[in-house]
Amino acid sequence: MKIAVCLSHVPDTTTRIKIGSQSDQIDYTGVQWVINPWDELALTRALELKELPGSGVDEVVVVNVGDSIADPVIRKALAIGADRAVRVNTAPSDSLSVARILAAFFATERFDLILAGLESSDYNGGMTGMLLGGVLGYRTLNGISALNLEAGKLKLSREMDGSRQILVVEPPLVAVVQKGIAIVPRIPSMRGVMQARTKPLQVVDPVKVEAGLTTIGYSYPKPKGACRMVAPGNENELIALLKTEARVL
């Protein structure tokens, strides 16, 4: 079995996001790029599965759509334990374009299981994984919070709003995963860092797609008004404010 993990590179989640002087782009100067948190959990689970005795997982491959700025992040994924990496060489734009670019790659190499994170922590679109499944025509499921292998099939837990299903699915599958798939992301070991030196990072050209969406402007959200403080002991006052001023009670 071959597992692919779609991997986005995103600014470190604690980074302050700066808008460029023309307000039409983000100023990424000095930003530290990291693996998108959900993708990191997906990778962690893929590696856990591969390491199970007799798992039948031959390979875990990370696939990124990005320019060379993503390389350090991709090599970190290799150091964490992915066997090889593919970078489709273009700066990512809207989610449908990225999904089509990814689908074109996956048409050239078949994977039994393709994992994608719930969303990327930059544009928070949360659509790329499902769109990929749609374009590719593979079985596609979102809300996946647990993933196991069972006799060549995939046993997964799908959390929907208000219910949860345990599903047994025949590959190939695109699974959009969320928290629970793994708890803590793996940290690369020294051995992993060393092995990453010789693992392949293949750079491939993208297919041409026309972006349907364009981000034309950025702005900062209005600062929130000052917090209205209520002295401890005056809880009655807080309740009155919530009733009459905020009108949420």
Partner: peptide, 14 residues
Amino acid sequence: KAFSGKVLTSTLVG
């Protein structure tokens, strides 16, 4: 909103 609410974006649908 993007970047978990840190910025707002204007998206043009072509």
